[in-house]
C-alpha cells in the first residue's frame, strides 16, 4: 500500500468546561479518537451531521487547534513536533477551501491581493518576484475559469460561485498537495454547485491533488469521492470505498443517513468511482 499523505491516529479533542457568570458549561468531547488515512491522489469524503466534529477535525489538520491526544501525520511527519518555520512550510502544502465564499475573502483586498497572498507569505519557498506573482495570479484565475480583468476587483463585485472560484485559486496559489474542502458547495445554488464540483474534479486531474472533502451532502460525496468515512458525534462510524458504503452500508448510522437523504436521481455510473 502507498504511504498515506495524511494520517490521523487516534485524535481526540476536548474543549474544557467553562465557568461563567451564569454557571458552568460541561466539557465537550468534539473528537473521541478518530483515525483515518488519506492516500495521495484520492478524494476522501468525510460525511457527518452538524456538530459531528467535522470542523474540529479540519481545524486540527490545519493546526489552527491542537488536538488533546493523538497524532496527525503529513507524509509521515508528526505535525505537532514541527517548529514554527517547518509549520509555515507545511501550510503551503495543505490548503483549505471554506464553506462560505461570502465570508472567506477579505472584503478590503482586491482579487489579485487575495490570490497572491499565499505567494507573498511563502515567497522563500516559491521565489516569485512581483511580476512573477502577478503572472501566477493571472494563471490561477484562468485555471479556475475567471479572467485577468477580474484581478483589480473587490470580492463584493462577484457572485457566490465566482467567489468560491477565487477561494479555490487562493488555495492553489502556494502549490499545495492536499486540499481540504470544507463543504465548498453547500452555500451555492444547485446549478453553480455542479460547475464548482466539475472544476474541482478537473483540477484534481490536471494538478494531481489529494482532496479531503467534508460534507453532509451525500449526493455530492457520491459524485466526487473515491472513499468515504462517516463521522458521528466525534467517532468514525464506518469507512470504505464510496460504492460499498452507498450500496451495502454496514452500520445503523450509515443506513439511517442514507435513508434520510432526499431521493435524488444520481447518474448510474459515477465518473470517479
Amino acid at each position: 500500500m502507498v504511504e498515506p499523505i495524511l494520517e490521523i491516529q487516534g485524535v481526540r479533542k476536548t474543549y474544557p468546561a467553562r465557568r461563567s457568570l451564569f454557571g458552568r458549561s460541561a466539557a465537550v468531547d468534539a473528537l473521541k479518537g478518530v483515525s483515518l488515512a488519506v492516500t495521495p491522489g484520492e478524494s476522501f469524503g468525510l460525511v457527518g451531521e452538524s456538530g459531528s466534529g467535522k470542523t474540529t477535525l479540519t481545524r486540527s489538520i490545519l493546526r489552527l487547534e491542537a488536538p488533546t491526544a493523538g497524532r496527525i501525520l503529513f507524509k509521515g511527519e508528526d505535525m505537532a513536533r514541527l517548529g514554527p518555520k517547518a509549520l509555515r512550510t507545511l501550510r503551503a502544502r495543505i490548503q483549505i477551501v471554506f464553506q462560505d465564499p461570502y465570508a472567506s475573502l477579505n472584503p478590503r483586498m482586491t482579487v489579485e491581493e487575495i490570490v497572491s497572498e499565499p505567494m507573498l507569505v511563502h515567497r522563500d519557498i516559491l521565489r516569485l518576484d512581483r511580476a512573477g506573482r502577478r503572472d501566477r495570479a493571472a494563471e490561477l484565475l484562468a485555471l479556475v475559469g475567471l479572467s485577468t480583468q477580474h484581478l483589480a476587483r473587490n470580492p463584493h463585485e462577484f457572485s457566490g460561485g465566482q467567489r468560491q472560484r477565487i477561494g479555490i485559486a487562493r488555495a492553489l496559489a502556494a502549490g499545495p498537495e492536499l486540499l481540504l474542502l470544507d463543504e465548498p458547495t453547500s452555500a451555492l445554488d444547485v446549478s453553480v454547485q455542479a460547475q464548482v464540483l466539475n472544476l474541482l474534479i478537473d483540477l484534481q486531474d490536471r494538478l494531481g491533488l489529494t482532496y479531503l472533502f467534508i460534507s453532509h451532502d451525500l449526493a455530492v460525496v457520491r459524485y466526487l469521492c473515491d472513499r468515504v468515512a462517516l463521522i458521528h458525534s466525534g467517532v468514525l462510524v464506518e469507512e470504505g470505498p464510496t460504492r460499498e458504503i452507498f450500496d451495502a452500508p454496514q452500520s445503523d448510522y450509515a443506513r439511517m443517513l442514507l435513508g434520510a437523504a432526499p431521493k435524488v436521481r444520481v447518474p448510474p455510473a459515477t465518473p470517479s468511482g
Partner: peptide
C-alpha cells in the same frame, strides 16, 4: 473571528500580517 482571518492563518501568515493586513483594515 471572520473566516478570512482563519484563511490567512491557514495560509501561514504571521500574526503581525494577520493583524495589520486582515483585521485592522476591516476596522478602519
Amino acid at each position: 473571528e471572520e473566516v478570512y482571518v482563519t484563511a490567512a492563518r491557514a495560509i501561514g501568515a504571521s500574526p503581525a500580517r494577520v493583524l495589520f493586513r486582515h483585521i485592522l483594515p476591516n476596522c478602519l
